[in-house]
């Protein structure tokens, strides 16, 4: 199976409470860049889906990572190559040139030449929290989609059984490849992903794998090509225009109560919440 994984670098979410707004502009200087966590999960999923179960692991298929961003974003791609992805593509652009629609149209153009069996994306990028690129890409390609995947079983080479996490429960879909799947948090649980090679009852370590030092060195030699955004999307006009950013209104710090009965009393008489 050939899998294309779009990978975005985002300002470190654990520093997001240090996000600053200056004259309506978002300040990201000083924030550390990290791979979008959902995209790390997508890469881990892609690796699990293409492993053949042998030791040492031999990849059965190919995992190609692609990012849209400036030269500095290549660090993020190299990181993905070190954890096991086979090759990388960077589409050269600044973040200001992008919205979800352009990323999706460019991804569709890449898919037209790369012909992957599967595009495996994160369900959302945790900077813009937009939750749209996977779905838009699927529509542009006229492919089926399975969003918010909590588990994936590759039954054969032609289809995937995907359990989606939705409000109030789950929906299970079978998608015929090629397709777009976006992954949710629980996809990296030990038994969430099964390829046809996965031994019955096999459990992966919880979460994503880390790169060994040797792999980090080896990743420097893997292929990383650069494409031009204009070659993929000739008419790259933004469909969403962001004007001013602002900070949310702060919440007034409350009080500490000493006892449970004081809590109930306050909730009744002060907050009128009971």
């Amino acid at each position: 199976m050939k899998i294309l994984v779009p990978l975005k670098r985002v300002a470190d979410p654990d520093n997001a409470n240090k996000v600053k707004v200056n004259a309506g502009k978002l300040e990201t200087t000083g924030l550390e860049w990290k791979p979008n966590p959902f995209d790390e999960y997508a890469i881990e999923t892609a690796l699990r889906l293409t492993e053949n179960g042998a030791t040492p692991k031999v990849r059965q298929g190919e995992v190609v990572v692609v990012t849209f961003g400036p030269k500095e974003a290549e660090v993020t791609l190299r990181g993905a190559l070190a954890t096991g992805a086979d090759r990388a593509i960077r589409v050269d652009c600044t973040d200001e040139q992008l919205d979800g629609d352009i990323v999706a149209r460019a991804l569709a153009a890449i898919a037209a030449t790369e012909k992957p069996d599967l595009i495996l994306a994160g369900k959302q990028a945790v900077d813009g929290d937009a939750n749209q690129v996977g779905q838009l890409t699927a529509e542009y390609l006229h492919w089926p989609q399975a969003t918010f995947a909590g588990s994936i079983t590759s039954e054969n080479d032609a289809s995937l059984l995907v359990v989606r996490e939705v409000d109030g429960g789950t929906i299970t879909l079978r998608v015929t490849l090629p397709a777009v799947v976006t992954v949710d948090l629980r996809i990296v649980a030990p038994k969430s992903v099964k390829s046809k090679f996965t031994a019955e009852g096999h459990a992966y370590p919880d979460g994503v794998r880390f790169a060994a030092l040797m792999a980090i060195m080896a990743a420097k030699k893997k292929s990383l090509v650069e494409l031009k955004l204009a070659d993929l999307v000739p008419d790259a006009a933004l469909k969403i225009a962001y004007a001013a950013f602002e900070l949310p209104p702060g919440r007034k710090a409350g009080i500490k109560v000493k006892t449970v009965s004081e809590l109930v009393e306050k909730l009744k008489s002060e907050a009128k919440a009971l």
Binding site: A11, P13, A16, N17, V19, V21, L26, V126, D127, G128, D129, A237, L238, K239, I240, A241, Y242, A243, A244, F245, E246, L247, P248
Partner: peptide
């Protein structure tokens, strides 16, 4: 119409317009 949407886990709000 102008749309306000939370970004960065609600640590900032973006004011956006759609141009289409």
């Amino acid at each position: 119409l102008g749309y306000k949407r939370p970004v960065f886990a609600g640590n900032a709000f973006a004011n956006a317009k759609l141009t289409t």
